[in-house]
Design a protein around this nucleic acid. Structure first.
Lengths: 124, 124
DNA sequence: TCTTGACTTCGAGCGCACTCGAAGGGGAAG
DNA sequence: CTTCCCCTTCGAGTGCGCTCGAAGTCAAGA
């Protein structure tokens, strides 16, 4: 029978630790995961997809607080779709800004690299 | 007489708090800043340029630990230029990776936005 | 002269996001 | 039955990067 993955397997799959997975659940970022007869978590594909989405939000810099807000909206059902879209669009703007900032600062770094290269030339 | 900016003026100029400026100095990220007769810090243009460079490194995700290493190299003089260049090139690679990750995850966010838009359509 | 406000040092505290450890239970393999 | 490992909950600890507060000094403006 395939009743889903254990917390360890799910952790390996989504690239988080088992500790973090339980902590996400406790923090309300994840719906309480179904348990097997022995009380152990069984992660099904829906849980995994949700976790993968969360990791994308995290790596793009969304705070746990905002992820929780999003999870709450998702729990409330279809009538929160517009708010969820707005939340994502705001997040998207922040990510775009972040990318722009990184690209701008990268320029300064490249300039520095060039200067160091020149200095290395001159030292010879 | 213009013997440089006070810590408050420097903080305003580079976008850090006075607390953070003193803390950077204490952590070895910044050379001890010259003082006036009353023992107050006087930030000169060299100090400001250094701080601006540091803020760029920070906003691009360099850790305080690595910034300290860089500051130490800079203190050692011209014979560390090659190592400083290497340090910057490694950092540059990390920033490029970060940008790529953000752009990849942004795709998933855009997909989500599209899905929500569809759902909003269908609800009408 | 008095007040105001920015400066000084020092050490403690904070928010975030985990991360770990203790103590115990369950179930499959040998 | 024993060994093994993974699971459970709970609460405490960690690392990072600040951030704040206390207590005191100093200088310029009214």
């Amino acid at each position: 029978m395939n009743r889903g993955l254990t917390v360890g397997e799910a952790a390996a799959k989504v690239g988080l630790s088992t500790h973090t997975l339980r902590w996400y659940e406790q923090e309300g970022l994840v719906e309480p995961v179904n348990r097997d007869g022995a009380g152990r978590r069984r992660y099904e594909s829906g849980d995994l997809n949700w976790l993968i989405l969360l990791t994308r939000l995290r790596t793009t810099g969304m705070s746990v607080r905002d992820m929780r807000r999003y999870a709450e909206l998702a729990r409330l059902g279809p009538q929160t779709v517009s708010e969820r879209r707005r939340l994502f669009e705001e997040h998207k703007e922040r990510v775009l800004e972040r990318i722009a900032d990184l690209q701008r600062d990268l320029e300064a770094i490249n300039v520095k690299i060039e200067i160091y290269r020149q200095m290395e030339q001159d030292q010879r």
